[in-house]
Amino acid sequence: MAQAIAQSTLTSPLFTVLNPQGRPTGVFEPLSMAPRLDTLEGKTVYLVDVGFAGGYEFLEELRAWFSRNMPAVKTLLHRKKGNMFLDDPELWAQVKDKGHAVIFGVGG
């Protein structure tokens, strides 16, 4: 059977066809990540819910964990403005100004 298929392939005509895929636009330039901290002790960590259901509740529990286990870490819990697909430049500016680190929570 396999031999018959191989023989068939050898004798079949060849076709040239067009590639159906579109052209990647490559518009995203990668950014360097922000410098890391030596420690979280005494630092302010923003916990930001981006808007998918359940994310805020999860971050509330994460905040409680920090309170119980690492009380020297100050956590600030925020919801991003608008839904999960919208930008929130004001919050990003606030995080840069007043925070040392940020953890984004993506629920769902």
Binding site: L18, N19, R23, P24
Partner: peptide, 15 residues
């Protein structure tokens, strides 16, 4: 810089 190659227009001839 992360970029994917532009797909070739024609695929290699084949059966």
């Amino acid at each position: 810089r992360a970029g994917r190659p532009v797909p070739v227009r024609l695929l290699e001839p084949n059966t």
